[in-house]
């Protein structure tokens, strides 16, 4: 039976600008968002798939978060987060400190050359029977959670 090493990846330099409140930042820029239900979005057209790698589904708003007014240690803003999905649905949630932090784990990419991600990589790995290695890419201590159903909101807001 194989022993699978679980590596701990040391945080690399901060990647891109993180639009979330500072408390939710992690060195790798990873965060956790939990919601009840699933998000449906339109299937991709050929055109979309070519031009983007993701689909915008909504907007997160932290109505009480204001770095100009509030002290950084003030965590009242965590109590309220809105998630607008599409143009007329909104979920109300909050930011929570996790009692037990979550490690985000993935299969370690083999060093020496970029390995193909996704399906091809998986098949490859199984076929060759390579030794599997895992790594903790981040430890996340907060999550944004929406535990209520979406409510309708009026007024189609057009994104400029």
């Amino acid at each position: 039976m194989p022993l699978i090493p679980l590596h701990i990846r040391k945080p690399a330099s901060t990647p891109t600008e993180n639009p979330l409140p500072h408390l939710l930042h992690t060195p790798s820029g990873l965060a956790i968002l939990e919601l009840q239900g699933t998000i449906h979005f339109p299937t991709l057209t050929q055109n979309d798939a070519a031009s983007t790698s993701s689909t915008k589904v909504g907007k997160l708003v932290f109505p009480l978060y204001n770095t100009d007014l509030n002290d950084p240690s003030d965590t009242k803003w965590m109590k309220r987060v809105y998630f607008y999905v599409g143009v007329n649905q909104r979920m109300t949630g909050e930011c929570k400190k996790l009692g037990k932090p979550f490690a985000i784990i993935r299969r370690k990419e083999e060093s020496g050359g970029d390995t193909a991600m996704g399906g091809i990589g998986d098949e490859d790995g199984a076929g060759r029977g390579t030794t599997e290695e895992l790594e903790i890419v981040e430890v996340v201590r907060y999550k944004i959670v929406f535990s209520t159903r979406p409510e309708p909101v009026g007024g189609g807001v057009e994104e400029a």
Partner: peptide, 18 residues
């Protein structure tokens, strides 16, 4: 507000409670 998007190709991750 912060734009929220879903990647077309999702990666495989596991969450481990520590």
């Amino acid at each position: 507000g912060v734009l929220f998007a879903i990647a077309h190709e999702l990666q495989q991750f596991r969450l481990l409670e520590l």
